[in-house]
Design a protein around this nucleic acid. Sequence first.
DNA 1: AAAGTCGTCAACCGCTCTATC
DNA 2: GGATAGAGCGGTTGACGACTT
Length: 359
Amino acid sequence: MGKAPCCDKTKVKKGPWSPEEDAKLKSYIDKHGTGGNWIALPQKIGLKRCGKSCRLRWLNYLRPNIKHGGFSEEEDNIICSLYINIGSRWSIIAAQLPGRTDNDIKNYWNTRLKKKLLGKQRKEQQAQNRKAAASLKQEIKRSSTTTNFHLPPDDFVNQVNPYWAPELPVVLPVMSYQTHDAQVLDDHQASIKNMLIKLGGRFSDTTNSMYSPIDHISSTSSHQFYQNSGIDHMLACSPAANSNYAQLGPSPSPSPTMFHGVDHQSDLEAELSELIFGNSQPHQQYDGLAGFYQMETLNNGSTGVTTSTSAESEISWGDISSLVYSTTTPLVSEYENSCQQGVRPSDSAFAESTYFGMK
DNA sequence: AAAGTCGTCAACCGCTCTATC
DNA sequence: GGATAGAGCGGTTGACGACTT
């Protein structure tokens, strides 16, 4: 027993709207408004369309002051920033960009912006890899002068350790480590630290004793990582992330109340959550993070080993965040503040108030 | 020139949320 | 408090044009 459809699907027209239909709808709404009932509206004006379809057409195309295409750099940054902070809440993101619709922004993100970021990430990653390969070679050279060690040919270095291969798209390479080499892990932690600084902007010196989340993805089972880092608590609290979490292997079945239970949350966990989320609203902020964590790690099941199999999986958090946080977006903190003060404002209320300039 | 592939975007679908009875 | 209906949202699909082979 499903819910009854809003209209008789066999009697409504589907597909692209004709100019006549547009004109009918527009002139009616201009004169009378929607009347607060989209379902009844098409019947009133003699349109063989579903009410939902009318609503969509109005909101996305017929409404006054709608902009299409031609996104500016500033708009790109706002979209990225908000996506990272609040996830795919397109209506809220759209509310920050006057004249833009959620559908437009969603399409723009999926078809262009994501790829744009990917391209940037790849470039930087390749540059980093080249640098790393060069310093490795130098290091080996130095070692070989003091021992009988022979420097392998370039090809060999690249083959046996694809991580160093400059042309391979590698994302967050630290996540691929399967080694316990102390120096490597130090570098590794430094990378994580840098990434977290980018994300959170602060990083206390307790890092020496701090579990690096990424360390734990690679050196322990991934769900242990989530438990140790406290992120599992956040995951447990995040409806959007729960399905992802379920893929992590043996379910630790965290209680949804765990995150809020300060008694169970170590200072370490609190610090990490603050570092990542910047405030105490994991629900709000994790959505975006969850999306990227899914891309980065969850696809790989419980091993936590990063592979670059899809375009999505190649987007690095550090790079996206660095791109985004390079420009300040007061809008994000505005939304965060709203969340902090009023626990969480109604999304639509927030969207509407900002869209209509009622702040 | 034709066929195949890719990218874009308008529109639809199905779900959740909210208001009302 | 439960049922129902409408609104709103995000994910997905499919048509179509551009580009490549």
